[in-house]
Design a protein around this nucleic acid. Structure first.
Lengths: 199, 199
DNA sequence: GTCTATATCCCGATAGAC
DNA sequence: GTCTATCGGGATATAGAC
């Protein structure tokens, strides 16, 4: 399959617009014509860059995961303490969400996984695996050095925090508010993590 | 708008099939013909019961919320302790999820809220408000009687637990597993709630 | 309550000129 | 890289007979 780094500048413009559409309406909620109209070109021009919608979405998920991986590395360089790393991680979701109430791209694609073309579903699965592995390692480090007291194995907490953050976006959508009940991803993560810290 | 209790038996059959379709593929992932084929009748017969898809989905969300309200009342009658009530609540999601990997109907509709007809989006919003209010009251009771030590206000924990449970279904979908990473809603809720209990 | 037939529209996708 | 034109299909929805 095509790799996002091979895309031309005009193709990148398509990816940007399509990604924003997915973040708001999901895979089944936008069309090639929606992209074309927002860019100001015609539908067949989109097909010129990405022949099928399946490939377009797979590349978007792939690029999104790549960007996220970069953000994780940046957090590692900026924060040394597990708790601080996890809060910085939660802030990634908060910033995504504050950007005009966007959903995590792979989050909303994950919800639609049953209707997704196989290549796109695989890319989405990679996104979640990447995040769970990274979170699991951070929780494990915290448990080993004693800065976090975990009542469950590290992978369970990794899954719990990721579910909490993706779920907070779903909630905000469902409630039709920018931040559900007034609390955003960071506040929810803090409520999750605070009791795990020794006094 | 029509109330679910006015629906005829044939109409209820339509609701049942459509609800199962939504739980797997979402609002934008199924058509009237999908319903018709599964029941064994023709497409216009579906329109006879529910003239528009917007109304059909609104009634489904309405009925789903009603059923959920009943389940909450049943938990109140069966469990007296806040922690036990919350775990029984998590089990509602676990059972939904084990039923052929279904998503919470209002959960997946919430993710698609931006593309939902207004009446359906309002019903979905009601579902979340109902759940947040109920959870908030349980957390508040736990904090007041001292059986739960909450680092954040009760409404924040209500939002956190609901986000965790909805998110766990999203994760499982995205990872293409019946229970993400092996841990289901109940295990994640336990990891969330255990540190909130005094020793 | 269900049917056949049809209207209208939009979708993803392709052909081929510029 | 973008365009016009078009195809085939599937979507929601309606009319009207049984």
């Amino acid at each position: 399959m095509k790799h996002f780094s091979e895309v031309t500048p005009a193709g990148e413009r398509v990816l940007d617009v399509a990604e924003a559409l997915i973040a708001r309406r999901g895979y089944n909620g936008f069309s090639y014509d929606d992209i074309a109209k927002r860019i100001g070109i015609k539908k067949p021009s989109i097909h010129h860059h990405f022949p099928t919608k399946a490939e377009l979405v797979a590349v978007i998920a792939q690029r999104y995961t790549h960007r996220f991986r970069g953000a994780l590395l940046e957090i590692e360089g900026r924060q040394a303490v597990p708790h601080a790393r996890l809060m910085a991680y939660a802030d990634l979701f908060e910033r995504t969400h504050l950007r005009e109430r966007e959903f995590c791209v792979c989050g909303i694609l994950g919800a639609e996984a049953e209707t997704l073309p196989a290549p796109a579903a695989e890319e989405v699965s990679r996104f979640f695996t990447l995040n769970l592995d990274w979170l699991g390692a951070v929780f494990k480090q915290g448990a080993e050095e004693g800065s976090l007291r975990l009542p469950a194995p590290a992978p369970v907490h990794a899954e719990g925090l990721l579910a909490l953050l993706e779920g907070s976006m779903l909630l905000a959508r469902g409630l039709r508010q920018s931040t559900a009940g007034g609390a955003g991803p960071v506040a929810l993560a803090a409520a999750y993590l605070t009791p795990l810290q020794p006094l």
